[in-house]
């Protein structure tokens, strides 16, 4: 299902490592970023297009804090009996409020995120899923989020 990893050369890795944040907000941002990397504007643009089309990067641009944009989110978990798992997954996924859903190796074996415009809609969606499946939905809303130092090293 997954494509084989794209081949990256030293310049690709340099671009991925250097451009995970701090892309300039200026009229010619590629030219500015390219100069810092010792590249030309055209070659940086061409490399980014290749990295994106080859699947090494999933997106290039601004990343938004979804909650700051006004949405509501809640991580939820269910303990689904193995025999019913696929049928329950189909019922859960049919709710448009379910943004993503993972099977995990645990007694609580289904973990999904509800994303809605308002906090009230989170509760309504969780209740609707409980009604559809006959199973309890455990709610794990975030109480505190921590600054993330995560960087992928290419």
């Amino acid at each position: 299902m997954r494509k084989p990893p794209p081949k990256l050369d030293a310049v690709d890795r340099q671009i991925i490592n250097a451009l995970q944040e701090g892309f300039p907000l200026s009229p010619r941002p590629y030219a500015e970023a390219a100069a810092r990397l010792g590249l030309s504007e055209n070659s940086l643009i061409a490399r980014l297009a290749m990295l994106r089309d080859g699947g090494a990067i999933t997106r290039f641009g601004p990343f938004f804090d979804a909650a700051a944009m006004g949405g509501a989110f809640c991580l939820c978990a269910m303990a689904v009996p193995a025999a019913q798992f696929d049928a329950v997954a189909a019922k859960v996924n049919a709710h448009s409020e379910v943004a993503h859903n993972y099977e995990r190796a645990h007694q609580l074996n289904m973990w999904f995120v509800l994303a809605t415009e308002t906090a009230e809609e989170i509760e309504a969606a969780a209740c609707a899923i409980e009604a559809d499946t006959g199973l309890s939905v455990l709610r794990f809303p975030k109480e505190e989020e921590f600054f993330i130092g995560f960087r992928v090293v290419a």
Partner: peptide, 17 residues
């Protein structure tokens, strides 16, 4: 204001191994 967290590339974790 923190609505934009960063501007840049999102590396594909899987592609990076």
């Amino acid at each position: 204001r923190g609505v934009v967290r960063r501007i840049g590339v999102a590396p594909n974790h899987y592609a990076m191994g």
